[in-house]
C-alpha cells in the first residue's frame, strides 16, 4: 500500500490553479524527487501534501497513521524568540531528551544541544532541521529545497545522509530541488512537474524524456552524466546505490 497518493489533484491560491490534475503515489522506502522550473507548483504541491493548502479538486490519500517529517525550505526564527536547539527538537512533541541527543549525534552535530538556533551556521541549522524531522521516526520525509544555502560539498553530504537515513530507517523521501543533477541521481524516481506531471520515471528515463528536455534544455540532460563524472572521484559514497 502506498504511503501517500495524490489523485487528480488541483490546487492553487487564486482562481487559476497552480497544479492541474496531478496524480502520483509514493511507496514505502522510495526516494522521489520533484523537479520543475520556477512557478511550476513544486512548493504548492508540498503544501497540499502536508495539509497547509486545501485541494481545489481531487484529493490526497494518506495511509492511516502516517507520520510525516517535514524539512522546510527556510525557517526564519524571530530574534525576539529565544530558542535552544534542545527546545526546538522537542517541538511540538513529546520526544525525550535522550532521543534529542541521539538525533543530533546521528546528524553529526552532537554538541549543539544547548546552543541558540539563531547562532548556528547554515550547515548546522540544516542538520538540526533534519534531525527534528527524523526524531519521531517518520514514514515519509518531505524536503523542500532543503539544501538551499549550502555549498556544493555541503549539499552532496546532505543527500548522502538522506540516502543513509532511508537505508537505516526505511522511510520514504519526497524532495523538491532545483539542483537537478545532484538530486536526480540520488533518487529512485523523478517527477517532472510543470503545473501538471510532464513525465516521471527513473532519473535516466526522465532526463532522456522530450518533455523534460523541453523544460530544462538538453544541457541538463548531460548534467546527470556530469554528476556521475563527479562521482568517480568519490570512493565511498552510498549515494551511488540510488543512482542506478
Amino acid at each position: 500500500m502506498s504511503l501517500i497518493a495524490a489523485e487528480s489533484l488541483s490546487a492553487g491560491y487564486g482562481a487559476e490553479p497552480v497544479l492541474r490534475d496531478v496524480s502520483f503515489t509514493i511507496a514505502p522506502g522510495e526516494i522521489v524527487t520533484v523537479v520543475g522550473p520556477n512557478g511550476s507548483g513544486k512548493t504548492t504541491l508540498l503544501r497540499a501534501l502536508i495539509g497547509a493548502l486545501r485541494p481545489a479538486a481531487g484529493r490526497i490519500r494518506r495511509k492511516p497513521g502516517l507520520r510525516v517529517g517535514y524539512v522546510p525550505q527556510t525557517l526564519h526564527i524571530d530574534p525576539t524568540l529565544p530558542m535552544t536547539v534542545d527546545r526546538f527538537l522537542r517541538l511540538p512533541g513529546r520526544s525525550s531528551r535522550a532521543a534529542c541527543a541521539a538525533a543530533l549525534e546521528s546528524a553529526g552535530v552532537p554538541d549543539l544541544l544547548q546552543r541558540q538556533m539563531a547562532g548556528l551556521s547554515g550547515g548546522q541549522f540544516q542538520r538540526v532541521l533534519l534531525a527534528r524531522a527524523l526524531i519521531e521516526t517518520p514514514d515519509l520525509l518531505l524536503l523542500d529545497e532543503a539544501t538551499q544555502g549550502l555549498d556544493q560539498p555541503g549539499s552532496a553530504a546532505f543527500y548522502t545522509r538522506i540516502d543513509q537515513v532511508r537505508h537505516d530507517t526505511g522511510c520514504a523521501v519526497l524532495m523538491i530541488s532545483h539542483e537537478l543533477h545532484v538530486v536526480m541521481s540520488a533518487s529512485d524516481r523523478v517527477i517532472c512537474l510543470n503545473g501538471h506531471v510532464c513525465c516521471q520515471g527513473t532519473p535516466a528515463v526522465v532526463s532522456a524524456a522530450p518533455e523534460y528536455r523541453a523544460l530544462f534544455g538538453s544541457g541538463t540532460g548531460g548534467a546527470l552524466a556530469l554528476y556521475r563524472h563527479d562521482h568517480d572521484h568519490d570512493h565511498d559514497d552510498p549515494a551511488t546505490e540510488a543512482a542506478e
Binding site: G51, H76, L81, P92
Partner: peptide
Amino acid sequence: WSALLTATLNAELAHASGI
C-alpha cells in the same frame, strides 16, 4: 503552549505536525 509555539515558529512546520 507547544502547538502555539510551533505555529509561531512556522506555519508549514505546524501543519506537518497536524497543528
